[in-house]
Design a binder for these strands. Structure first.
Lengths: 130, 130
DNA sequence: ATAGACTTTCCCCTAAGGGGAAGGTAAAGG
DNA sequence: CCTTTACCTTCCCCTTAGGGGAAAGTCTAT
C-alpha cells in the first residue's frame, strides 16, 4: 500500500513514516522506477508498534531497541523488562521534579494578591529579595 | 565585568549569556573597539532572575515576559500571578500525563516475568495482540 | 616579547518531526 | 486520449535552548 494509507492505518503522519524510513527504523520496499514507497502489512504492524511505544514516552532510539527485541522471537523477556523499568524510573524522577516545581510555584502564587498593585511576592522571589 | 565573571555570579554558562545577549534578553554594553561585552551589576541581577525563572520551567519567551514585568515598577501583580498560574496548570497536566504513562508501564512490567523465556506481555501489549 | 587565559564571531549539532516548494506519478472523469 | 486532481518524491528551512569547537583577536603577567 502507499504511504498515506499506511500512515492512516498506523495512526501516524506521512512525515513521520518518511522520517522513520530515512533513519532506517521501518524501511518499506521502494520502487526504483518511481521511488514510491510500498508498505507491507508487516511494515504497518511495526509502525503501530513504534507508534504505541512512542506514546509510552520511549525515545525513537529506544523504540528501535524495542523493535529489535520484538523481531527477535528468541529474546529473553528480561531485556524488555529492563528497558521498561528504566523508563519507569525516568518517568518517576521527572514526576518528582515537576511536583516540586509545582509546589514552589503554587506557594508563590497563593502568596501573591494578584490585584492592581505592583507588589508581587513572585517577582520578589525570582529577584532573590526573599 | 567580563562575561566569565558575570556567568559565574549568575550561575549560568558563558554560552548562555551570549545566547541571551543575542536574543535581546539581557544586553550588556559592548565595547565597539574590542567588542568585549561589559556586564553591569544590574545585568547580573537580570541574569539571576532569568536563571531562576528558567529553573521554574518558564520558557525563554516567558522569562522575557516576566523580566518585562519585573522591570516595570508599576505593573499589576495580577499579570505575574496569571502567568504563574498558567505555568502551574501546564505542569499539572504534564503530571497527569506522566502519571498515567507510569501506571500503564508499571502494570506491564509487573506482568512480565523478566526471565530468559521469550514470552513478554510488554511486547505483546505494544504489538497490539492484547 | 611571549605565553596563557580570556574573548569574539561563525558554523554545525541536538529530538522528532512540521511546513512548504518544486516536480514527478497515478487514478478517475470527460 | 487528455486533463484534472490527488498523491508521491526529494530538498531545504524551522522549531528549543543552548553545547562544542575552530579561528582569530585581546588582555595580563612575566
Amino acid at each position: 500500500m502507499k504511504i498515506l494509507e499506511a500512515a492512516k492505518r498506523a495512526g501516524l503522519t506521512v512525515k513521520t513514516l518518511r522520517y522513520y524510513a530515512n533513519i532506517g527504523m521501518v524501511t518499506p520496499h521502494q520502487d526504483p522506477a518511481t521511488s514510491y514507497r510500498d508498505y507491507s502489512e508487516e511494515d504497518v504492524a511495526k509502525l503501530q508498534f513504534v507508534g504505541k511505544a512512542r506514546r509510552f514516552d520511549f525515545s525513537v532510539e529506544e523504540c528501535r531497541e524495542l523493535l529489535g527485541l520484538y523481531e527477535d522471537r528468541n529474546r529473553p523477556s528480561r531485556e524488555v523488562k529492563a528497558l521498561t523499568l528504566k523508563k519507569v524510573a525516568e518517568i518517576d524522577s521527572r514526576l518528582a521534579e515537576l511536583q516540586s516545581l509545582k509546589d514552589e510555584l503554587s506557594g508563590l502564587a497563593s502568596a501573591c494578591d494578584g490585584d492592581h498593585r505592583p507588589d508581587c511576592p513572585i517577582l520578589n522571589a525570582l529577584s532573590g529579595q526573599t
